[in-house]
Nucleic acid binder design. Structure first.
Lengths: 254, 254
DNA sequence: CTGTCAAATTGGCCCTACCAATCTGGCGGG
DNA sequence: CCCGCCAGATTGGTAGGGCCAATTTGACAG
């Protein structure tokens, strides 16, 4: 659990002073939200930020560089650092970054992520059924086998679940789609672990995975897609109930 | 053409030595590809990279930080900088970064991007038809008006096209989807400009945009989605012909 | 052959210094 | 009183030196 580098003990991040990692990014993000800075507004200068957070200017510059590559801020030479419009400009990685830093997505974002995931994975599974090659099938089978092992050992199924879905996404032979789906699973890692904390969910998911794999192997794209849709709906129902809200937009899912 | 910072004359990037911007990222990327470094392999140390590219170590650290946030490399303290598996780990922003640096997507990636775009935008347009609010419609209308103005002035329609599609994506009320679609348009900005260099394409696109907007306004999600599908197919046909290849996987699009 | 310890290497970080461009404010001319 | 110009302060961009902790390496001693 220590090699991923993502599992951080500092969940609430209140007493964090023993490690002082590169949470500078997180601290700057917190600063922005606390100050209620809006799009277009200017952040303190690098020198000010360095002083405020008691770090060197280099560290600040690295943190800003990170925030810049996820399009949350914009550096204007000889002027300052400006906040970009959050939803319009922000990249998917901005969410991944936040999640990695321990800031969970809010309920609305989770709902939107689930909806997007359904769109991409259902369509992706259909493509996988049409295009899967021998090595894709072997990879999927390996992931299924790993799932069985994990269930037998009563370990958390979350990673196995993600790996299976990624294997399917890989079988689409669409690497751009794979990148997006991969980000989804980075975004929902923690939530997924909670979901599978209930040991009864893993066997059910595994059964559905096996059925999907069979359809994909048979080259039945639409069939596999239908199974994926049903598979995702069970998870979606759980989340919508837990979040006590409806899917984005207000009306019920089909 | 100079304010976006994305248009770089260094297309083939052979003789680039006159500006020396923050292309350090690009130079490191070039170095990696030239050396044929594979996943898991170690890059030279920061000090070596600094010396090799005749820059300070700070600059190298910032460039590596950028590459790390798009998940292309991994920094292991007291050990080195390692290349991550390109397709599995890489984020969509890694592609955006490359595009911004002037390295165009290869033909296969363009095809995959088009396919993904079709999936997301067709489904997204259906959602937009169901959920659009008054301000969404106003925004869409504003983009349509801007399109007419651009056409009347015989300017390049590329940005107008992107803005309309983004306005539709915004009407889905799914901000996560919006982020992904936004990345798509950042990825294809240059290609889009080339596409609309032929002045005959803009009026056709505008007509289709207007029809789509009407369906969205009427709340006809499926109808709008069908129009979007047809709209995208005309562009797709162009690209597939230009790239002289088939969509990902080998078989024809439906 | 094995265990141990010191030196080299590496990323993480701080600090100072300089540059070019921009912004600001005040002074002087009209 | 207003306008224009110019010097100083500010800001991001960058080089370069230095220290630390952890790891790796390799030589030396047992």
């Amino acid at each position: 659990m220590a090699l991923g580098g993502t599992a951080r003990a500092t969940i609430s991040g209140r007493f964090g002073r023993e490690d002082e990692r590169s949470d500078l990014v997180a601290r700057i993000l917190t600063f922005v939200t606390e100050r209620r800075l809006a799009s277009g507004e200017r952040l303190p200068s690098e020198r000010e930020l360095a002083e405020r957070f008691a770090v060197g200017r280099n560290a600040v510059r690295e943190a800003i560089a990170v925030l810049e590559t996820v399009r949350m801020v914009e550096r204007r030479p000889n002027s300052g650092i400006y906040l970009r419009s959050v939803d319009r400009d922000g990249s998917l990685d901005a969410l991944v970054l936040r999640a990695d830093l321990g800031v969970p997505l809010d309920a609305a974002e989770v709902g939107e992520l689930i909806e997007l995931r359904r769109i991409l994975e259902v369509q992706g599974t259909e493509l996988a059924g049409q295009r899967r090659q021998a090595d894709d099938l072997a990879h999927i089978d390996a992931m299924l086998a790993a799932g069985r092992t994990t269930i037998a050992a009563s370990e958390n199924f979350a990673e196995r679940d993600a790996e299976f879905h990624l294997a399917v996404a890989e079988a689409t032979r669409n690497r751009v789609l794979l990148r997006v789906v991969n980000s989804f699973y980075m975004l929902s890692r923690t939530r997924r672990r909670h979901y599978f904390a209930d040991g009864r969910r893993a066997p059910e998911a595994q059964r559905q995975h096996e059925a999907m794999a069979a359809s994909i192997r048979a080259g039945d794209g639409p069939g596999a897609a239908a199974l994926m849709r049903a598979h995702l709906q069970s998870a979606e129902a759980y989340w919508h109930e837990l979040l006590q809200r409806r899917p984005p937009g207000g009306e019920a899912a089909s």
